[in-house]
Every structure is written in structure tokens, then in C-alpha cells.
Amino acid sequence: MKFRCRMMDVIAMRDFTNIVNVISRITKQCTLRLTPDELCFSVSVDRASMVWAELTQTHFFTEYIMNGVSEEQNEIYLEFDPTMLAKSLGSLRMTAKSVKIKLTNKRQPCLTIEIELPSLSLESRQCLHDVPVRVIPRREWAEHRAPNIPEFDISVDMPQLKHVKHIVERMKNMSPRLTLEASKTGVFALKVDTDSATVSTHFQELQVWSSSQRNQEDKVSATIDIKKFFMFLAWDIVHPDGVKCNIVQDRVVNLFLHVADYVKIQYFLPSVFT
């Protein structure tokens, strides 16, 4: 088993740091799946997948060497605390020249992060972090596979996350639950219901990608945990090129976000009973 990679591009380093940062705010334990083409962060809650973020390695890394467990199963699964990785990558935000990430076996398996920082003298400084990881054995891989994407009742573009964020930030203070609603006409709505008021925000003229509805007026909705939805909005920091909201009536909300073709993020929010 071998993994070593190197990042040199400033923008790639910034994006990578941002992604790890957002994940670290969601969870204390995440899985990183390494394949020859992709890095994939995944977060599960109660064995159900919540976040699935795929990063194309060629975009981020100038050098990427990995050998999996065997030739047939050329993958590596690691489990670790993303807050530690986020803290280690913290110094990337300054003017780091490059960073190397490799899987090492010190006292225990670690992701070793070597950051090369510029200094006033000719010699550059080096900053080294070890993030302890657990190598997930093959028999547990099945639990960490890519989630099944259900068939959606509706798939619609989300409005700009920045706008949604301002609104959900306030709705969060009113109720712990939020209802997302979309219709074939391209209307997307956020709703909260409290004892003293009903508040809903409507966005119009959004692209509808698919819909199982017969009538234009039929609406598909699901009620979800507002705090988890708000956490998703933090992905705004990666400047997505598109965000889709997919709803299965009263069952699940799936949010899909992509940056060009090198970052793809799936987010699953199960519906809660009201």
C-alpha cells in the first residue's frame, strides 16, 4: 500500500483546504477513499451516507502515486478526524509553495503533510504534520461504498447559495425544521412553520431537470433538519458552478454540487417527521 501526492498550485491548495475545512465542521470522523483517479471524502451518520465529495486527482495534484491493497482492488480507505487535517492544512492558506501528503507508518498509520513555506533566506522552511489515521480493512469496505442515488420526484437548480444562506440563517432562529418545496414550474421554496407564524421564501424561474409530476402545479416537498441544511450552505466557499436540489417526496433531499468537473459533492438529508 502506498500513497503520495504533491500539490503546487495556489488555487488548488486553497480549494483543497476549503473542502477539508467544510467537512471538518460537519463531523469528527470521516472516511477518505483513494483510487487512482479520485480522492473521495465521505461522512456517514448512523450508517447512512450524508456527504460524499469526489475530487479529481489530476486537477489538484501535480504528482500522485498510489498503490492499493492489491491490483484488483486498487483502493485505500482511511478513517480520521477531519478537524486535525483541517488544522494541519491551516498554514496552506498563507503563502505555501507546495504541499506533499503521504501515507506513512510512524508509531501508527498517519497522513503526513509536508508544507513548504517561503522564507526570507534562500532556504525555504518546512512544516510537518502527522494526522493519525485508521486504515480500514477490506472486510469493512462495503460500509463505505458510494451511496445509492434514489430516483427523484423532482430535480431542480438551487438559487444562489449566498441568497439561500441569508434566508436560512434567519429561519434557523425560528424553527428546527425546514421544508423544501419545488414544482415543475421552476419555483423553489423554503418554509418554516411555527406556532405564531408561517414563513416561506419563494425563488422563481429555476431550471427544472426532471420531474415525475403530471400537473404544473403539483409540488414535491420534504421536511429536513434546518441545521444540517445550513451546514450544506457552507459549501458556497468553493464557488460551485451549479447546485441541484433533488427531492423524493417526504423521504429525502439530495443536494448535488459541482465545480467544473473536478469537484462533485453529494449531500443527503433524510426527511424528518413533523
Binding site: 441568497h163 406556532d195 405564531s196 407564524a197 408561517t198 414563513v199 421564501t201 419563494h202 422563481q204
Partner: peptide, 18 residues
């Protein structure tokens, strides 16, 4: 209810206050 509509560039918040 007291119905309040707040609008900004096509985004409409409908606040229905009991």
C-alpha cells in the same frame, strides 16, 4: 393573519403572522 410580503429581485418572502 397579518400577511407581509418582502420582495427583493424576484425573491419573495411571505411571512404570515398569526
Amino acid at each position: 393573519p397579518l400577511s407581509i410580503l418582502i420582495e427583493e429581485d424576484g425573491i419573495i418572502t411571505d411571512c404570515s403572522l398569526k
